[in-house]
Amino acid sequence: MRDRMHAARVIARTQLVESLLSPGLYVSLTAGLVIGWLLCAGFARAVDSSGFDPRLSGFWSFATRALSGGFGPVFVERLLSEGPFLAVLAASFAPVFLVLATGSVFRFGLEKNAGAIELIVYGPADGTAFFIGSFVKDAVLCAGALGLLTLYFLVIAAAQNLVVGPMFFAALPVVFLLALAIFAFGILCSVGAGHAAAALAVFLGIGALFTAMLAGSLSAAGSSARAAAETVSAVLQWISPLFYASLCARAYGGGSATEYAAGLALLCALTGAVLAGCHLLIRRTGVRA
């Protein structure tokens, strides 16, 4: 176990250096930060004497109408009650998250196909050490990206006299643990699928399914989306990280710190369970493509 952890640490460090040497992370981070600036500037321009009026900004008008239509005006009111940063976090983190998640899934498949993992396994490492290393790399980069986004949001807040409020800071650990859980699902897809493209397709499919389930469960009562989501969710919600993230959001909204912490713990537990599943699967299927 100790050797495996050591190997995972070495692999994580190597992959981290490789990620920092490739442009994908930098470009996606820049995209996220620029999106953040533009959306916050749009928010500030849509503020008049009575407060935030989304009709004064093209993007915010479209976004709030779309969200109100799907989830109701209460959802939008809560989302923007402290200012734009909670909504902007989702938009800014998306490029980095997608690059990290899809990059890892694709790379795992490619290296499996090329026999690189098999080669490593002949040495002191095993398949589990490899995916744990990959997971740790993603976790470190994800934390760094979230930290950088938060820092930049603080700069924007100071410039525009907005607030990065407690709801935003409460959302940060949820977003981080949610990302980790999805990275774990990415590893599961990589381990389970035969090819890189197949792994990526399955991963994106699972992500789309979880997102659709969450969107459906948040939509207004009586809508067909909600009815369908409720049917599917009855079975699948327990393995959806987005479900546990929504539990955290609901608990925070209700002022229950215990339930919020329980939601975070469940997200960790889900990640652990998926990684354990990966371990069992890779032991069974091996690291050959």
Binding site: Y26, T30, V34, A41, A159, Q160, N161
Partner: peptide, 29 residues
Amino acid sequence: QVRIVQRPPLLSPYLLPALTPLIAMAIVL
């Protein structure tokens, strides 16, 4: 809190930190 929002122009110096990763990338590469 009541906050009086400031509106810096879209292309203001506050946009520069957003380009930091690109600068870092250029240095690393």
